[in-house]
Simulated scan of single mutants.
Amino acid sequence: MIIHDFTHKRSILNHFVGELRDVNIQKDRMRFRRNLERIGEVLGYELSKTLDYYPVNINSPLGIKPSEYISKQPVLCTILRAGLPLHQGMMNFFDQAETTFVSAFRNHSKNSKEFEVVVEYLATPSLDNKTLIISDPMLATGESLANVYEVLLKYGSPKKVHIVAAIGSKPGIDYIKEKLPESTELWIASVDEILNEKQYIVPGLGDAGDLAFGKKLH
Rank of each mutant, 00 (worst) to 15 (best):
L20A: 10
V23A: 11
R29E: 11
N35Q: 07
L43I: 09
L43G: 06
T50I: 11
Y53N: 01
Y54A: 07
I58V: 12
G63V: 01
Y69D: 12
L76G: 11
L80Y: 05
R81V: 04
R81C: 02
A82R: 03
G83T: 04
L84E: 06
P85I: 06
L86I: 05
G89V: 01
M91F: 09
N92E: 09
F93W: 10
A97Q: 09
T99L: 14
S103A: 15
S103I: 09
S109F: 14
K110H: 13
N111W: 10
S112G: 01
S112C: 08
K113A: 15
K113Y: 14
F115I: 04
V117S: 06
V117M: 07
L122Q: 03
L122I: 09
P125K: 02
N129M: 10
T131N: 04
I133M: 06
D136A: 08
P137E: 03
A140T: 02
T141L: 14
S144G: 12
L145S: 03
L145H: 02
A146W: 07
V148A: 08
Y149L: 12
Y149Q: 12
E150Y: 02
K154E: 10
S157T: 15
K159S: 15
K160L: 14
V161A: 08
V161Q: 05
I167R: 08
I167H: 09
